[in-house]
Design a protein around this nucleic acid. Structure first.
Ligand SMILES: [Mn+2]
Ligand SMILES: [Mn+2]
Ligand SMILES: [Mn+2]
Ligand SMILES: [Mn+2]
Lengths: 224, 224
DNA sequence: ATATAAATTTAGGCCGTCCGAATTTCCAGT
DNA sequence: ACTGGAAATTCGGACGGCCTAAATTTATAT
């Protein structure tokens, strides 16, 4: 029987670890190096933190194999994701931040806000379901809406779609694509596509844009 | 020559120490025990932190005598006070917090917000000069408006005044005086006063209130 | 002048978080 | 089955920040 994780409150660092592990969680267990790279820490540091988090029941660790979040760990991580994305949304909607400079701010504030403040922000914003990058905002119960996306390079040419989510956190890329009018909510249409992952031409805001395949693949659309 | 304090960024704890020392600074140097009591830490811990802060040039320490902030230390402390009070104001004005529950929240957020966010909040609020408790908000350059106050027990009876500042952080007291209509901006008038620091009767919001001398002394008024 | 009390500092420990270096484990290719 | 290299862990050390207990300094009272 693992100890009740609620008894050991999470530190700021631990909160970031859990969030990182959730983001890296796919089919397989998450490796030490993956976490180390994402958080820009040494693998040694990560090994140490993994021990503490596992002792406290936030994750399960199979040595040399990787970690998997426990239910408590996933809930805690989703709580941080909710905070992060709600804060980003609030900063953009209410305080004039741009979508390329909210991440850092949210990365710090997410550890400092109370549940009450998070609730108040959510309410003030009308309980938004997506953040400025189109990332879904988990509800308090951990559920969230994840639409069926089609990446721009995979669109049917000539069929109008709505850009819904931008899968990059890189500030320069974000500025570039915002300049091009490629923001969530924009109507986009695939015009043409060069073979071998070549450049992609999209119609957006009454003009045409040729963008790199890599970048286009980060732009996720939904129908209508 | 002391080292440039800007080279050693302040930790969260250090920021709270500087803020506490500024608040305790009067004529004389601030003693270790004063700081310890205010921050609810042991005097030994304070001694340790004083060494670090003094090594880094934020304050000057005369052993067994107390500390005095350097110019850099006072600027850093005022910066934190500005943050704290602006955050309190924002939470009350924009997010429905009450004046008795903003302090804790601000105490954490003050360490997490960027200068940019502080500026945005100030702008959104129209650069307020006072926080919800009537405490003056330092400007970025460290200056602030400090009106000439008269405490309620010292008022001239029958002369109408404006309640401007409430010198308590105690949540229960704050709720009590808010219930009585004694909030900054309210028109108040001293009706009578019992001798020997006895209870004080004030006229506020069309009614009369009898309050303890101690509490009345925390209510600071300005003319007109 | 001296004893006592109060304030302060020092000494020694603990915990969380990080690092580099050394070691162990795992796996793929022979 | 063996082995070299990659991945992960352990080890030793650092620092911040807190604690208690002991030692030291300063203030005060007789
Ligand atoms: Mn973070
Ligand atoms: Mn986002
Ligand atoms: Mn604080
Ligand atoms: Mn205040």
């Amino acid at each position: 029987m693992t100890r009740d994780p609620a008894l050991e409150p999470l530190t700021r660092s631990a909160e970031d670890y859990l969030k990182a592990i959730l983001a890296l969680s796919g089919e397989a267990a998450v490796s030490t190096t993956q976490i180390a790279q994402r958080l820009e820490l040494s693998p040694a540091s990560v090994s140490g933190m993994i021990r503490r988090l596992s002792d406290q029941g936030w994750l399960e660790h199979v040595p040399y194999r990787g970690v998997v979040l426990t239910d408590a760990g996933r809930r805690a991580a989703l709580r941080m994701v909710r905070r992060h994305r709600l804060i980003e949304t609030y900063l953009v909607d209410r305080l004039g931040f741009t979508w390329d400079d909210v991440h850092e701010e949210a990365e710090r504030l997410e550890h400092a806000v109370s549940d009450q403040l998070v609730d108040r922000m959510a309410e003030a914003l009308g309980h938004p379901r997506f953040d400025p990058h189109g990332d879904p905002i988990p509800r308090s119960d951990g559920t969230m809406d994840i639409p069926d996306y089609v990446a721009v390079p995979d669109l049917v040419t000539g069929e109008p779609m709505i850009l819904h989510r931008v899968r990059t956190g890189d500030a320069e890329r974000l500025r570039y694509i915002a300049d091009a009018g490629l923001v969530p909510g924009a109507e986009v249409m695939l015009v043409s596509r060069e073979p071998f992952d070549g450049p992609v031409t999209v119609r957006v805001g009454g003009g045409e844009r040729v963008i790199a395949h890599d970048l286009a693949a980060m732009l996720l659309c939904v129908r209508e």
